[in-house]
Write a protein that binds this DNA or RNA. Structure first.
Lengths: 213, 213
DNA sequence: ATAGGCCAAAATGTATCCAATTAGAGCATT
DNA sequence: AATGCTCTAATTGGATACATTTTGGCCTAT
């Protein structure tokens, strides 16, 4: 996949934005990227447009490209949208999850509890939630959700650092409730637990406005 | 706005896709567009990437660009997402609507009733709903909603043609309920009426699978 | 000392050219 | 008649070169 030049460039840059190598607000110079990949600036421009479509990069005509930055209200909005969309997505995914995926989800919840550093926690948490949506084939809904996860990734990391696993007990319980609903095919429970999970994060997040200054 | 070349090209093409000049599945040849706008192919490629980000155009590497097409299930998915997102958007918009906007909304509901041809109906209906969201400043939520409206525009037109204003009485009543909620600042009523409005359309739509063949 | 304007360097946007890939017509085969 | 194949023309992708715009440092004037 992504055999095309712009595709590969975009994928690499996306990875670097998600893992924090490229921070929000940081400028991306076309020629620098072109040199890194041994390509001309044209494929790089295409890649930047792709990432703009994903909301990860903000382009300004005749000026340049920056890693997208969210204000506090934009971040809260992202969580409000998650509260509406992810339960819907989960409800459509649950009937189609395979036994292997259910096993993996169960294992992930345990692993998340054992996670001792922030990067591991973030990676596993992301994997758990996105895997729980694997029963739905790619479409607009999953695309929206993935986009929200991507654009808020940096703030999830910053938030985890500040909290230093403070609310981890509550988080683990919520994950178990979601998992229980999934395993028993009790979609409403899973949906409600998920909505509560996201909502609590949103409320807690808005108590840390310092993340956005 | 959109003073840049790719911006202008994209805007024109978007317009033509929305008003039906360019039909879903139709191919878009870079050089043809470039000639039309008296520009080179480069800005056109940028424009196509922009439209791809909007979901209006589908690009295939080394092959070309086509106006995006929705399957029936994708269209239903779009309406499911609308049911979740638009009531949220409306609830955030209502407190910030100006007196002028409320007057305009009232007028639009009346105009929609008087609409005698399909294009007028589509235009006014779109204007009514999008104006009801004008109290919210641009952001992820409004962007998602606008994208859904754009990608489903063609199917709304086809649906209206088939129905030939059959359910228009119900539609008008729903619009009045939404408007009443907005005017009285009764957000829950407006939200519920809007959700019912979208839901009914979705259900009715799935009774016309011939639209997707 | 600070604000404002000017100029040079750097970065982005566009055009043109060439290479690589694909699509479709026409032919051959079953 | 239908299917598969080949080859050519058309189209897209990428690189280089040039034009345009912006940015930021520096100078001047208040």
């Amino acid at each position: 996949m992504a055999s095309s030049s712009p595709g590969r460039v975009a994928e690499t840059l996306r990875e670097e934005i998600l893992n924090g190598t490229l921070a929000p607000g940081e400028r991306i110079v076309q020629e620098d990227v072109a040199l890194r990949f041994g390509a001309s600036r044209q494929p790089v421009r295409d890649a930047l447009r792709l990432l703009e479509g994903d909301g990860l990069v903000t382009l300004k005509t005749n000026s340049g490209a920056w890693v997208s930055k969210l204000s506090e209200s934009e971040c809260v909005e992202a969580y409000l949208v998650r509260e509406r969309l992810e339960p819907l997505l989960l409800s459509q995914s649950i009937p189609n999850l395979t036994t292997e995926q259910l096993t993996k989800l169960t294992a992930l919840v345990k692993e998340i509890e054992k996670a001792s550093d922030i990067e591991t926690f973030l990676r596993l948490d992301r994997e758990f939630h996105l895997l729980s949506y694997a029963g739905v084939q790619e479409g607009m809904l999953s695309e929206f959700v993935e986009r929200i996860w991507n654009t808020t990734q940096h703030y999830r990391r910053a938030f985890a650092k500040i909290n230093n696993f403070a609310n981890s007990e509550v988080t683990h319980m919520e994950h178990k409730l979601i998992l229980d609903g999934i395993l028993r095919g009790d979609s409403p429970q899973a949906e409600q637990a998920l909505e509560a999970h996201i909502r609590r994060t949103r409320v807690t997040l808005s108590e840390h406005k310092e993340l956005f200054r």
